[in-house]
Structure formats: C-alpha cells, structure tokens
Simulated assay, not measured.
Amino acid sequence: MTGPDAGAVGVTTAGGIAVVALDRAAKRNALSTHLESRLAEALRSPSVVDSRAVVITGGAAVFSAGADVTELREMTPAAIAAYYRASGAVYEAVANLPQPTVAAITGYCLGGGLELALACDLRVADERAEFGFPEIGLGILPGSGGIARVVRELGPARTRDLVLRGRRFGPAEAASWGLLTEVVPAGAHVDRARALAAELAAAPPQALAWTKQVIDAAAESSHRTALLLEQLAYAALNRT
C-alpha cells in the first residue's frame, strides 16, 4: 500500500534510548504489510541497533487497532506462509532484539497490536487503553505469537477466555493478570516507558541480552534445563 494512508514508522533517540513510533493515524495504526515492513526497517536502523533500550509506541491517541486484515483476506495458504516469512516476521524481530523493549500503550491495543505489545519485554499502559483479541469474530485467530505468548504468560484457561470469546479488557484487568508492568494516568504512557527504558539502559548490555534469552528459554523448559541455562549464561558473563 502506498499513499497518504499507508503510514510510516519514526525513530527518535536520546540518552541511548530509541523511541520507535507507529504513524498511521488515519487507520488507527492498523498494521498493514507496508507498516510492518517500515517497522522492520526501523528495527534494523543504526538508531535502534546502537541503542541501549527501545520504546515502541503508537503515539498519543492509540497503540494499534490491529492487523489490516483486509490485505490478508484473499490470500492463499501459500501466500500467508510467504507473508510470515516477510513482513509478518516483524513481531518475532521485536521479541528477538537484544536490547530491552518497552511498549507504551494508550487507546486501542487489539489483535496484531496486542501481539506487538506482547512481543516487548515490558508494557506500560495508560488508563485509556483497551485490549482484546477480536480475531475469532472474523473467523480467524491470532497468528503472530498472541496465543503462544498469552498461554505462556497466563495459562490456557485465561487464554481460552480471552481468545475464544474475543472479549475486550482494560488496563486494570491486564495489570492484575501480570500482562502490564504499570498502569499510568492518561497521557503519561510514553514518558513512563522512557523512564523504564532509561532504567534498563543503565544495566550492562550483554547481561541484559543474555538474561532476556534465558528468561524466554526458561519459560519453555524443564527446571533442570532452565538451571543449566542460568549457569552457562552466568559463566559466559562472569568475565565481561
């Protein structure tokens, strides 16, 4: 998609922190393949690569109302598979960044937008945020890590409640379940996310990168395997 509604992704840096901002206000930051590709380019930019921490935001009004499903509706299974290898891989690219990442959320954070937020390490939402997986009503399901991450974070029973019913939920519920790091007053989401990013950026970057990987692996491993990963990472970091 091109034209004035295609959207863009901006990157600003200060104090070692890169703020990556979705900018498709006319479509409530709907994540089209164009916007996903711009986000992937932003993540590969020197401003992000050289940063110590990353904030991802949709700006002052909305995080993202979800994936632009109109693009995917007519795709064949082969085309969908190709999509996940191309722009659809950006959600895992966020999750795999070596730097700590903080999602700054307000307004709609739905479907693909929620999947993008879940790919971040920490999530700050203001009191106006609204969450949900509406895909079931469209005859599809979250396909960019949403189910996998919610199951890991909240367990299968809560995941069934949220995904099968497609129900909306607010920041208070999300925080009570542990999906949010903090809830802040309206309009304070980006400033607070930057403050958390600055706190994280002060830590040694190699320790952050290794620890992120160990946490992710431990969530999917046996106790014995997780303990071994901790010990190997400790040994690798001990002389850094």
Rank of each mutant, 00 (worst) to 15 (best):
T57G: 06
G58K: 00
G59I: 06
A60M: 03
A61C: 12
A61M: 00
G66I: 03
G66D: 05
G66V: 03
V69A: 06
V69P: 00
T70A: 14
E71A: 01
R73V: 15
E74H: 11
M75G: 02
T76P: 06
T76L: 12
P77N: 12
P77Y: 06
A78M: 14
A78F: 00
A79H: 10
A79K: 10
I80K: 09
I80A: 14
A81Y: 00
A81K: 12
A81S: 14
A82K: 13
A82H: 13
Y83A: 08
Y84V: 00
Y84G: 11
A86E: 14
S87N: 09
A89L: 13
V90Y: 07
E92T: 11
E92W: 11
A93R: 14
A93H: 10
A93T: 13
A93E: 15
A95V: 01
P98H: 00
P98W: 02
P98V: 01
P98D: 14
Q99N: 11
Q99G: 08
P100T: 04
P100I: 08
P100D: 13
T101K: 10
V102I: 13
A103N: 02
A104E: 01
A104S: 12
A104D: 01
T106G: 03
T106R: 02
T106K: 02
G107A: 04
G107R: 02
Y108Q: 09
C109T: 06
C109E: 06
L110P: 04
G111V: 04
G111D: 02
G112V: 04
G113A: 12
G113K: 04
G113I: 05
E115F: 04
E115I: 07
A119I: 09
A119D: 12
C120Q: 05
C120L: 06
C120Y: 07
D121A: 12
D121S: 11
L122W: 08
L122F: 14
L122R: 13
A125H: 00
D126E: 10
R128K: 14
R128S: 15
E130P: 00
F133W: 00
F133D: 01
P134L: 01
P134A: 10
E135C: 05
E135F: 10
E135T: 05
I136G: 01
I136Q: 06
G137N: 08
G137C: 03
G139D: 09
I140C: 09
I140R: 10
L141Y: 12
L141P: 01
L141H: 11
P142N: 09
P142C: 12
